[in-house]
Write a protein that binds this DNA or RNA. Structure first.
Lengths: 207, 207
DNA sequence: CCCAAACTTGAGGATGACCTCAACTTATCA
DNA sequence: TGATAAGTTGAGGTCATCCTCAAGTTTGGG
């Protein structure tokens, strides 16, 4: 355990986290740190005292929010119809991306030093495999769909969201609807391209 | 008509265009201009003499390449089967994105000052409407698919390509296959979200 | 061959982001 | 109420990119 912070320091830390959340949401995950310090009413030096790196700030800001936001896994599994559960899961995930620039980045990229964020993402998405399995066992979801394909879907959605969020913030729903029609088992035609391996997936997230 | 360039100036201009093509292809459209000057063996001042802006450089580099690259419109219309033609058109478009970072950017974004680029894109894609129409009239392509949806598809593909080109350069084909299965008329379920209006499309390209 | 116009050059100012650290301020505890 | 450890500050160094311009070089017509 580390020593507790002095009262003023704790207060500044709280203000920094609040400001970071706001700035990241609004300007994305590459927002300048000086902007966060400014908005927290604190000097840039203080920000670096509390959070030696951007990743450390991520680890302070996002795990809670991700844990809250990614709770739809259980909701999806609770759906009576497995296909509806799958659709709900994917739709919620995309909604998350659409509602918050920073989550859109985080779901899509990995930051090797933000270990707490990685863990929160992992926890949130580990239900995905169950949701997929269940829909496939019910014969609703095409059997060749994998977890890696879900990640690919979020990449696709990320760019659509980025392009349209200012002028047509729900446009992504249309692409998703087309895609979901192609994910039904009844629509499936054989696909040559194999799914990404876990290693490829991992490498792609670091881009 | 503007006066012809002096011989040395023309030569430098050629070297700059060649270097720009190489650098843009390799590093994308935001590559530093100084890198281009360096690779052309010319000073940064000369680059700015010839091309007062990045967009001017685009206009010199890309229209020819785009015109050549986007010729698959006729090829698609020549396919006996209208659905195969549509698939060929979309696949070629995505291949173009996958093969060249700069084209991936250009197909996806608009640069208001690069008028020649915009025109070349427009010319290349004006066949798209015919390809879509033909596939729809044949009852193969779902009737609610529009040109705007094709652009959305290229946004989606752009991000997938960007994420995977170093480690799994054909991964985009899998997402495209799933999506195409959803674009068949036989797979279509009603979609609530309306297509982007031309204005929304235009606005989104400027992001 | 010469000179005026055309062209090239690269140092350097502007910007915006990163990160550090020596000097200052404040909380806490005895 | 000090004394001291903890915390804050912001000017300023670093870096990468953009863009300009005064001084020098080259071309080509007369």
């Amino acid at each position: 355990m580390s020593k507790p912070l002095r009262r003023d320091a704790q207060h500044n830390r709280d203000k920094l986290i609040a400001a970071a959340a706001a700035v990241f949401t609004e300007r994305g995950i590459d927002a300048p740190l000086e902007e966060i310090a400014r908005q927290a009413g604190v000097s840039i030096g203080t920000l670096y005292n509390r959070f030696p790196s951007r990743a450390a700030l991520f680890d302070a800001v996002f795990p809670d929010r991700l844990a809250n936001s990614l709770m739809f896994g259980d909701q999806a599994l609770a759906c009576e119809d497995p296909w509806d559960g799958f659709v709900l899961f994917v739709t919620r995930l995309c909604e998350l991306q659409a509602g918050d620039r920073s989550l859109n980045d985080l779901i899509t990229r990995r930051f090797p030093d933000a270990t707490a964020v990685a863990e929160a993402c992992g926890n949130g998405l580990d239900k995905a495999t169950q949701v997929i399995d269940r829909a496939q066992r019910a014969g609703a979801l095409r059997p060749d769909f994998t977890f890696a394909d879900l990640v690919t879907l979020t990449w696709a959605n990320a760019r659509i969201v980025a392009a349209t969020q200012d002028t047509a913030p729900t446009a992504w729903r249309r692409h998703l609807a087309f895609l979901l029609d192609g994910l039904r088992a009844t629509a499936a035609h054989p696909v040559d391209e194999p799914p990404l391996t876990p290693e490829q997936l991992d490498a792609a997230m670091r881009a």
